[in-house]
Write a protein that binds this DNA or RNA. Sequence first.
DNA 1: CGCTATTTTGAGATGGCTCAAGCTATGTGG
DNA 2: CCACATAGCTTGAGCCATCTCAAAATAGCG
Lengths: 240, 240
Amino acid sequence: MDPPDSHSDDLEILLRTPLFRGVSPSDLHLIARASLRRRVPRGTVFFRQGEPATQVSVLTRGRAKLTRVDPDGREVLVRFVAPAEMFGGIAVLGDSTYPVTAEAVMPSEALSWQGDAMAHLMRRFPQVALNAMRLMAGRIQELQARLAELAAQRVEQRVARALLRLARQAGRKVEEGVLIDIPLSRQDLAELTGTTLYTVSRILSRWESQGLVLAARERVVIRLPHGLVTVAEDLEAGGG
Amino acid sequence: MDPPDSHSDDLEILLRTPLFRGVSPSDLHLIARASLRRRVPRGTVFFRQGEPATQVSVLTRGRAKLTRVDPDGREVLVRFVAPAEMFGGIAVLGDSTYPVTAEAVMPSEALSWQGDAMAHLMRRFPQVALNAMRLMAGRIQELQARLAELAAQRVEQRVARALLRLARQAGRKVEEGVLIDIPLSRQDLAELTGTTLYTVSRILSRWESQGLVLAARERVVIRLPHGLVTVAEDLEAGGG
DNA sequence: CGCTATTTTGAGATGGCTCAAGCTATGTGG
DNA sequence: CCACATAGCTTGAGCCATCTCAAAATAGCG
């Protein structure tokens, strides 16, 4: 009944979704059946900051980005979402409105559950609640780390770290090095690191001339990860 | 049997501890009995960043601050802890080491539970697990807000917001306005907002001459909260 | 009542921002 | 298949908010 790219694939993704770790495949099947599938083109907004939070989602294909608009209108990129990652869960569990906007940055697919359905699932499968806690704890630690970074480091180090993080989350080995497999503009990198697209552009140009990275339109390849680590840790003389 | 300032007081605090919201007083009594009380002088470190995380705590008296040291050695102040607030919980639920250092900034008292004891409590009282999730969700939202702030706003606005947040968390009405009831040095404010103590000092001096605040040694009183809000939102002409 | 931590203030340096202009892939319609 | 339109990117020049470093003034504390 299911075409090969729907429920059966869903299950495969859900099996390696941290939120559902430890849940048996048959229970996962139940869980999957309680979900809604949404397949969207690039640019689609899953939900918008400030809207009443109604659903928890897991990305099954593609990539999404979570952004937040400052009262002053400046955008900040909170994080990218990769397949098998949960998003939108914080709002449902915490406050009643989404604290970020979620947008697909390439053709994507997500499964989602209504907040009360998820609450039900957590009651029925306590492991899911535990997983959610562990995930949130991890998110908190990451945010604290970024906060410290933003407070204490220079732009160049922050950009280096952002790229290294992205490589870990969405890196793909290619001939020239590690490709960050997300359409990633200079503007995105700037919003991710709290700087401007101009500064990011200059930094990437310099790194490219030093052979550290390859930078193209919405595309970054890390050629010398270790070199970036050196920059990130500020062990640099100043270079040139 | 209990002296008036120990178990009975504990219970009173625990009754208004968000982590235990919805737990009956008799169950709370049980919970309290599973805890360890620690009374410490100013400057005591409850736990240090990087140590294996073993216990979840609730502050019952005093104040604590959670700081994080950058690889480069710079300190960042993650947050202050007020009575009835949980701390140390993230580490126990998430990773196995504390991501921050917790230090009493005045004579303080905390109750703590071993990680496995807390896990046991959460299994026995699912409401506690739910509360923990809600708390973490709130913490994530706050961290995201601060991240956006740090990425997008000027120092003066960040300091204004930090003071307003502190006033909400630890404000006490006094004759001259709202006293931030924490020993709060210029250095602390700088570490909280990602700037230097010099810049904070200059900003406070200016605000004091404008009548917005009273600033003394490790002490800040907000005289015109609305004025600070104006600064925080950058509705200012520039002012002289 | 002197010691020490905290704070203030000055002066100079600079990293990163802003604004302005031109460049280059990529895609589109003729 | 080409010329144009467009979104994304690069680069230059000038400026300024903020940092750094230095030194002096204060305020608690023992």
